[in-house]
Structures are given as C-alpha cells and as structure tokens.
C-alpha cells in the first residue's frame, strides 16, 4: 500500500515537472520571438535594408521615448488617451447593457427596434466622427462619445440575446414564488448573463481604442492618436511608431485587467 502511494507520488511529481518544462519551453520561444523581432528591426534599419526614415529603429524609438518621458509630454498624451478610452469603454458597456434591459423589459419595443438595430450595427460608427465633433465640440467629450458609440450597439445586441436565452425554468421557479418582472430580472436574467457581459467587455476594450484613436485623429489636439497624426504630418515616423507601441502596450494591459476581473467574477460556474 505504502509502496503504491510512493509510486503514485513519484509519477505525480514527474507529471508536474513535465508541465513546468512545457511552460518554460513556450515562454522561451515567446521571448525569443520578441527579442528576434526587435533585433532584426534594429539591424534592418542600421544596415539600411529598409528605409530608416519610414521604419525608424528600436533604438531611435527608445531615445525618443526617454526624451518625451523626461519633458512630461508623453505622460500627458498617454493619460489623456487612456482616460478617454476607459470612459468610452465603460460608458459603451453600461449604456449597451441598459438598452438591452429596456429591450428585454418591453418585448414589443424590441420587435419594433429590431431592424434599426441591424442597420445601426452594420453602419461603420467612425463615420459619425465629424458629426459628433460638430455637435459636441472638438474636445475630449466628442472623443469619448466616439469610444462609446463604437461599442454600444454590439453590446446591446449581444447582451439582449443572452438575456433572452436564460433558461425559462429559472424564471418559472421565481414565478411560482410570485416574483415580479423586476425580481425575475434581478435574480435570474442579469446574473445568468454576467459571463456574456464580461466577455463583451473584452471585445469592447479593442473597439473603444479604435473609436478613441480615430476621434483623436479628427480632433487633433492631444493624446496618442494626435501624436500619430502629428508625426505623420511632420514626417517623423519614429513618433508614429512610438505611439503605436504604447497603444499596443496599454491595450494589452487593459485586456489583461478585464480578463482578470472575468476570472474573479465567474469562478462559480
């Protein structure tokens, strides 16, 4: 018996070790690709395999990064964009969920609204940019509006669909206790749809970045989107690429935060 247990212990340890080995292997190659990419870029630019004016180089970007960090302008632009994106993303998700609630609450309204939702969803929302800027003024409010508009319709559709797909037997249980429509919503429909709402959060992170960057292109006052447009206009592609890398970094961090929240919130399903 004891021997048997020992044997299983050994096998288990061996299994865990193999898992770890696999993980290290994957990490190693991920890191290798990262390093190789930047090294190759640097070399390509240095030996003029590509036009350094257009593609810049990691060292030039790094130097610019340090410089902009020192004079404080990078922090301002990044935080402006981040603020607009987070707000646009939160507003888009909240508004979309509220609209979905309205559709669920008034089934007839949802039938009437259906074709319009399809049209609004199909329309490229960034095309609304100029109108928003004229309506709300060329300030951060119109940029936030862009970040919101771009995600609100798809959120509405996805969340409403999940509201409707809640197993009617849960509602039946509540109805046998005499639950009101509000109680049905609060106790069954909303909690059952939490996983869907969280997963739309993930999609909306990406969408809001698109909306906000395009908004900053148009308004052209501040932010990482402005930095891209400015760099493009004065033909300073190092600046463009620096902004791009920062956007990629921030968007990834935001996505990871949402993924973390998702894991915390829906651990019991």
């Amino acid at each position: 018996m004891k021997q048997q247990n020992n044997r299983i212990d050994v096998l288990h340890r061996r299994y865990v070790a193999s898992l770890r080995k696999e993980k290290r292997y994957v990490r190693f190659y991920q890191l290798l690709i990262f390093v190789a990419f930047f090294a190759l870029w640097e070399a390509a630019s240095h030996y003029r395999w590509v036009d350094p004016l257009l593609f810049s180089s990691p060292s030039a970007i790094w130097a610019l990064f340090i410089k902009k960090l020192a004079d404080g302008s990078l922090l301002v632009h990044s935080s402006v964009t981040l603020f607009e994106t987070v707000l646009g993303f939160v507003l888009g998700t909240l508004l979309g969920t509220c609209l979905a609630t309205l559709l669920w609450w008034f089934p007839r309204f949802s039938k009437i609204a259906d074709p319009y939702l399809v049209i609004l969803n199909a329309m490229p929302k960034v095309a609304l940019g100029p109108i928003l800027i004229v309506a709300l003024g060329p300030s951060f409010s119109s940029i936030i509006a862009m970040g919101t508009v771009i995600s609100v319709i798809i959120t509405t559709i996805v969340v409403y669909t999940s509201f409707r797909e809640v197993d009617p037997n849960y509602l039946k249980v509540l109805q046998t206790f005499g639950a009101s429509r509000f109680q049905c919503f609060k106790e069954a429909v909303l909690p059952a749809s939490f996983p869907t709402i969280i997963s739309t959060l993930k999609v909306n992170v990406g969408l809001s970045w698109v909306g906000v960057i395009v908004g900053e292109f148009l308004v052209s006052k501040q932010g990482l989107g402005y930095m891209i447009i400015y760099g493009f206009q004065v033909f300073q592609f190092t600046l463009v690429l620096l902004s791009l890398l920062i956007i990629a970094f921030l968007a990834t961090v935001m996505y990871q935060i949402v993924a973390f929240i998702e894991k915390k919130l829906i651990k019991n399903r």
Partner: peptide
C-alpha cells in the same frame, strides 16, 4: 402563496450558495 411547485430538475441557481437558494422564495415573497 399556499401552492408550492417543484420542477423535474432542481433548477438551483448556480451563482447562489445552497443557503441563498433556500432563502430565495422567502426573499421573493
């Protein structure tokens, strides 16, 4: 309120603990 109904499957709410599930009817009523 005098009529209790039990379905073919338990339909306990998976996001509630057993205790929260038990008190559901009391809460609703």
């Amino acid at each position: 309120p005098s009529v209790g109904y039990m379905l073919q499957q338990d339909y306990l709410f998976p996001w509630k603990t057993i205790q929260e599930n038990l008190f559901l009817g009391l809460k609703i009523m």
